[in-house]
Design a binder for these strands. Structure first.
Length: 294
DNA sequence: CCTTGTGTTCTCCG
DNA sequence: CCGGAGAACACAAG
């Protein structure tokens, strides 16, 4: 379940590997994953020149090879990749399959596997695999104008300087939905998902069911103060692997052991020892401590 | 049946 | 009846 820290981990890994190499081969094993018509034509023979993240969306800049008549830098295209719930981007170089299993572990995966949907091959023969079990993820190519429209749909970038206490107050105060639903809303704040929202609300001592407009200033402050540290720690740990996430090396994240509330239903609260509850909020499995969160 | 990210559709309310 | 907010559904597979 890739959220901001997992997507950021993948983006950082790929940045040192896939840029400025000609894409010499493209295998589309499951066409409906690819949402653009002339996908192959827009990829083959070209290079990726930069990679960034907006919320949970990966944006890869494409530089067109200079051909007769075409100006290479004119109206560049961008490859958008969304991993949704079970998407993976795994990079492989040389004969060794880097992907597969945790560093502690056990499982070795051979790529491509039955969940491989798209394969990019670069001029140095290295490969980038897009794997997706449930196939909700997608790859799409947009031009710079379309990219701006896409960007406009995203809310506050939680790790950017635009996240201020006042802005967060503005976003939370008028809303009549649960604070959990609000924090999950990508148009409000971009990149949080089920795991990190539960963690943030636990740290902030706020129950996920609370209606946003009922939050006291102090509680909004607590949420504000929780967001960056939790995301930064998770990135440092290379993300959380609950079911499916692997980084670009095919390795699982290490943040699971640091989760204080998510996935700990029935276990003792690490702060007060009482039994952690699990309910459904905004259609999502939601964990909280009755004692610590008000 | 359960799991979840997000785009779409439905429903409610003023 | 319209618009907006929020909730519910659809998607897919293990």
């Amino acid at each position: 379940m890739p959220e901001l820290p997992e997507v950021e981990t993948v983006v950082r890994d790929l940045r040192t590997r896939i840029l400025n190499k000609t894409i010499i081969k493209l295998d589309i094993l499951l066409p409906r994953i690819v949402k653009s018509k002339s996908f192959k034509k827009l990829i083959l023979g070209n290079k990726f020149i930069d990679i960034e993240r907006i919320g949970k969306l990966i944006v890869v800049g494409i530089k067109r090879a200079a051909t007769n008549g075409a100006h290479a830098n004119e109206n560049n295209d961008y490859l958008l990749i969304h991993l949704k719930m079970t998407g993976q981007l795994v990079y492989q170089k040389g004969n060794k399959i880097i992907a597969g299993g945790h560093s502690e572990g056990n499982v070795r995966v051979t790529l491509p596997n039955r969940w491989t949907r798209v394969i990019f091959t670069f001029s140095d023969k290295s490969k980038l695999y897009f794997n997706d079990l449930r196939t909700f993820g997608y790859l799409r190519i947009v031009n710079s104008k379309e990219l701006e429209i896409v960007k406009g749909k995203f809310g506050i970038e939680p790790l950017g300087i635009e996240l201020t206490l006042n802005l967060l107050k503005e976003k939370i105060k008028p809303r009549k939905t649960s604070i959990k639903a609000l924090l999950l809303n990508q148009q409000v704040i971009a990149g949080l998902g089920n795991i990190y929202v539960d963690e943030i609300l636990f740290r902030a001592k706020v129950r996920p069911t609370r209606i946003a407009n009922s939050l006291k200033t102090k509680e909004i402050e607590n949420i504000y103060k929780a967001i960056k540290p939790i995301l930064r720690q998770a990135i440092k740990a290379r993300g959380t692997t609950f079911n499916n996430f692997v980084d670009a090396n095919g390795k699982t994240g290490n943040f699971v052991s640091k989760l204080k509330i998510y996935g700990r239903a029935g276990k003792k609260c690490k702060k007060c020892g009482s039994k952690i509850k699990k309910i459904k909020v905004a259609g999502r499995g939601t964990h909280f401590c009755v004692v610590c969160q008000k």
